[in-house]
Design a protein around this nucleic acid. Structure first.
Lengths: 347, 347
DNA sequence: CTGAAAGCGCTTACAG
DNA sequence: CTGAAAGCGCTTACAG
């Protein structure tokens, strides 16, 4: 068996099958019919290739075809459970479709994002799934203008006509606020990031509008904390909300905020829901195992991830394809947001 | 500016700089000295390339050089927080070293593992970091025999002389058991996976030996549960341990087992540590936020991940390099494993 | 010191 | 129906 460096080449198969490399290439790429190659000879070539365990050199294939079958996934942090869950689904779906995913983390930093986009483009990705960080509008605008296949995930810009796959963020906090109002809470506060990103602004609006519609505009309190180091801001906000504003419920706008918030509330010895009701964001084992299981807003992660990768691949294949996948949140109600018995007695 | 398809090629730079493509290639690859190219001309070429924003086509480069600068990371599930934390560190370190990481998940399945190894090799990875699943010894043996750069992570085979980066698993449960003994617990049970994998067997041995040395061999109880669907087995084991064997402490051998165990204990209305002390594995927010914060065995994740990727890259560069990174666990003691006041009174 | 040529492994027009 | 040739974009011996 002719080998070079242990690796079987197309010409080895050709020699073994007694045909030219060109013919082997055609047959193996399913173009036997197209080039009107005889059935027996095609079959013989396939057999020979299989027997020799031939696998084409992808690098050569890519160079020749100009395709890489590579896509990029840029998230803020792949070690964040939300994004690792997304990555898993994107990965699996991409593999099914014969694409390979390159993953990078930006740490919510614009320079990193710019650099990573360049790096991935240079590596030859044919498309990009991007979680844009604060301040990245110009970058996203450029991607849009270049017509490079791009899908935004989790966050988007309402005025940029790019494909995206995101949660209905307004609805998410509307659901949460409505539920708290139904349970009789009035002095409902919000803990958010200090950012211009629209997914956060939408979540804030959903809450504010619902409070206003309920005639509770004067109870609106939005604590804004640093996205890169949220803990001190959360602690400060919670102390003010509880001690000065006497909030009776708080909604945390992200998973990270909720986790950090629960640590603070524990340290402050605040009882949930007796002292304050809590609603969090995204499922987390810590919510369910908390002494009062935490009510949370559930995102359909699988659909968000599949929406993004499927849209991207379609876009790669048909450049003017565009799709906006807008997904509905769900409220998983647990003990942390329900009026408990003694409260009802007191009422 | 000469362009083809919007992309600048090396010959465009050559033309603009008035030299041959070969010279441009040499200069840009830092081989100006080696080929004794004049300083001014080298500088001029660099300037021109930068000005034209030239970035070499990596596919062509790879084809020519036979290198891909790709490494594979095969874990059991990238959405598992332990592995996503590993992936993040491997990713960052690999990028620093100019490598790109391809990640795949096996779901602890041997066929998947075999397939993914093939897929990644075919994609041209120059090395592999592998979390081997149950039954993969033969596959690992084959990788070893082929001299393909491979580093095992988290799990290894004592009789296969491959590089690896793993926890000192024996020590981990020794630490945990010793701590429980010190606290006065005697009837200490273990919840493990039903598997032949050595990291689990070592953890079991660390516990069993410590129990034997303390003269408590008769209290040894090891519940073994299905790795793919642990919950029912955990529930069954815990019921037996608590109701029949009257265990006063339990060590869970992995993070997944601990989380599922806590769900079961909650459902069973068992109080921790009053009814039973608990020690878990790997940090998890859910442990710290549990009503009695859970004592756990901490793995030095960063060192495990860095050990693996650094070893792999060295091995790629120097094929006979080999390294076994053996890392020490640490016990983070919290309330779940401490005798509380009332127990001490009762004693 | 510098340029022309060959070649990495594949695929696809182009002749026959 | 089938083979020889060109070419994807780069790098590296080989002449000069």
């Amino acid at each position: 068996m002719a080998k070079k460096n242990g690796k079987i080449l197309i010409k080895d198969v050709a020699k073994a099958a007694g045909v030219s490399s060109a013919l082997v290439s055609m047959v193996l790429n399913g173009k036997a019919k197209q080039y009107r190659i005889g059935d027996e000879i095609a079959e013989h070539v396939r057999q020979t290739a299989k027997q020799m365990n031939y696998a084409p050199n992808l690098t050569a294939k890519n160079l020749r075809s100009g395709k890489t079958q590579l896509v990029g996934l840029i998230v803020t942090d792949i070690s964040n459970p939300f994004y690792s869950a997304i990555a898993r689904i994107v990965e699996d779906r991409a593999n099914e479709l014969n694409y390979t995913v390159l993953i990078s983390s930006t740490d919510e930093n614009l320079d990193n994002t710019e650099r990573l986009v360049d790096v991935l483009l240079n590596k030859g990705v044919e498309g990009l799934i991007l979680v844009p960080c604060d301040g990245s509008m110009e970058l996203v605008q450029r991607l849009h203008a270049s017509h490079f296949p791009t899908v935004l995930l989790d966050r988007h810009f309402p005025n940029i006509d790019l494909s995206w796959s995101c949660l209905n963020n307004y609805k998410a906090t509307e659901l949460a606020t409505d539920h708290l109002l139904e349970q009789g809470y009035k002095n409902i506060a919000l803990i958010a990031y200090d950012t211009e990103m629209h997914h956060i602004l939408d979540r804030i609006s959903g809450y504010e509008d619902t409070m206003k519609n309920a005639g509770l505009a004067s109870y609106i309190h939005v604590g804004k904390v640093d996205i890169l180091d949220p803990k001190p801001g959360i602690r400060e906000s919670l102390e003010e909300l509880i001690n000065k504003k006497h909030a009776d419920a708080v909604i945390f706008l992200t998973n990270m905020l909720t986790i950090n918030g629960l640590y603070c509330l524990n340290e402050m010895n605040v009882k949930i829901p007796e002292d304050i009701a809590v609603i969090g964001f995204n499922r987390n084992d810590a919510f369910n195992l908390f002494h009062s299981p935490i009510t949370y807003i559930r995102q359909p992660i699988e659909q968000i991830a599949k929406g993004a990768i499927d849209t991207l691949i379609k876009q790669i294949k048909k450049n003017n394809y565009k799709s906006k996948v807008f997904l509905e949140p769900e409220l998983v109600i647990q003990k942390s947001s329900r009026r408990c018995e003694q409260d009802i007695y007191l009422a």
